[in-house]
Amino acid sequence: MDVVELHRRASEEFVRQVAAVRPDQWDAPTPCADWDVRTLVNHVVGEERWTVPLMEGKTIEDVGDSLDGDLLGDDPAEAAAHAARAAQNAVTEPVLRGGTVRLSYGEEQAAEYVYQLAADHLVHGWDLAVAIGADARMDPAVVDGVASWFKDREEIYRGGGAIGARVDGFSDPANALLGAFGRDPSWTPGHPAVALLGEAFARGDVDAIMAQMTPDCVFESTSPAPDGSRFEGADAVREQWRKLFDETPEPSFETEEAVVLGDRAVVRWKFSWRGPDGERGHVRGVDVLRLHDGKVAEKLSYVKG
């Protein structure tokens, strides 16, 4: 696949992902630790907006600070679509005639620059998809094209600080490429309420636990077998946590793993206590959470054994 087609496919997929962002997801975390969803999208749209003047022969000095700041406005999806179309139209002729562009590090072949853009769209498209809980599968042909180009440039990127440490251990081509770009293919977005809930359980702080749950929250306990008990509403749920911490000798909750995907989360935990013989006993279990308006609306608990 030629580089113009690689760029077109990668940029169109990115536009599709931007259109899927819900209004409440723009400040969601992404695999780029310092960027939320809006910052990530603004970065890529900025690259597309830069593509047009650079392909026309302008320098970075010519463009100046005209593309600094927010480029998304009130309609990020339309801003991304418009910028992508303009960039796609701008790259074809310079690449076909073997033109050059002037980048921050000097003069570069237009085709090489478009490979860089295609790679950035592909990887940041994955970043965006996993951040918003969308389908994160990448076009295999685009993955192969970018991987072939990147294999001789990976250490240059890493040495320049453009990517993080390589993550190894993947046979799938898409995952291997993400690992080469310093991504963990198993990354999932965190959620403040899930993290704060885990911290509150670790402290045994019932007030802090309930602060992360909705007024109409639901809790299903692990006993009695086989279905547990169901408690509805904040008052009923609060009473269960109060009894647990008051009646259990030296209770301790530890979060072992938390995975968030959209409005659902799964948390693996270990609960331990001091037994009559002085030894600590424990069980391991899983909570299936439903999130609503930034809080935990439902906590369904399951335990091993």
Score class of each variant (00 low, 15 high):
residue 112 E to Q: 04
residue 210 M to C: 05
residue 202 A to F: 02
residue 125 G to A: 13
residue 131 A to H: 10
residue 117 L to C: 00
residue 140 P to N: 03
residue 176 A to G: 09
residue 114 V to C: 07
residue 186 S to N: 07
residue 206 V to S: 04
residue 150 F to I: 08
residue 115 Y to A: 12
residue 205 D to L: 06
residue 156 I to K: 13
residue 202 A to K: 13
residue 145 G to I: 03
residue 196 L to Q: 11
residue 134 A to I: 14
residue 129 A to G: 06
residue 156 I to V: 15
residue 138 M to N: 07
residue 114 V to L: 07
residue 150 F to K: 06
residue 180 A to K: 05
residue 162 A to T: 11
residue 114 V to Y: 04
residue 173 P to I: 11
residue 143 V to K: 02
residue 168 D to C: 09
residue 183 R to A: 07
residue 196 L to G: 10
residue 200 A to S: 13
residue 171 S to K: 06
residue 162 A to M: 14
residue 108 E to T: 14
residue 179 G to A: 10
residue 116 Q to G: 15
residue 175 N to V: 02
residue 195 A to L: 01
residue 119 A to S: 13
residue 208 A to M: 08
residue 152 D to K: 09
residue 130 V to H: 01
residue 163 I to N: 10
residue 163 I to A: 02
residue 193 A to Y: 01
residue 143 V to D: 09
residue 218 V to S: 11
residue 167 V to Y: 00
residue 189 P to S: 12
residue 109 Q to W: 10
residue 152 D to I: 06
residue 167 V to Q: 06
residue 120 D to A: 01
residue 178 L to H: 01
residue 123 V to M: 05
residue 151 K to Y: 00
residue 208 A to T: 11
residue 139 D to R: 09
residue 207 D to G: 12
residue 200 A to T: 14
residue 187 W to G: 12
residue 121 H to A: 11
residue 193 A to C: 12
residue 112 E to P: 15
residue 197 L to F: 07
residue 157 Y to A: 09
residue 208 A to L: 10
residue 143 V to F: 07
residue 115 Y to K: 12
residue 137 R to I: 00
residue 125 G to V: 05
residue 160 G to Q: 10
residue 218 V to D: 15
residue 143 V to R: 01
residue 128 L to V: 11
residue 196 L to V: 15
residue 183 R to M: 08
residue 215 P to I: 02
residue 179 G to L: 08
residue 129 A to M: 02
residue 124 H to P: 01
residue 151 K to H: 15
residue 192 P to Y: 09
residue 149 W to G: 13
residue 167 V to D: 06
residue 131 A to V: 11
residue 193 A to F: 08
residue 146 V to I: 06
residue 180 A to T: 10
residue 185 P to M: 05
residue 115 Y to S: 14
residue 158 R to S: 02
residue 115 Y to G: 14
residue 173 P to A: 02
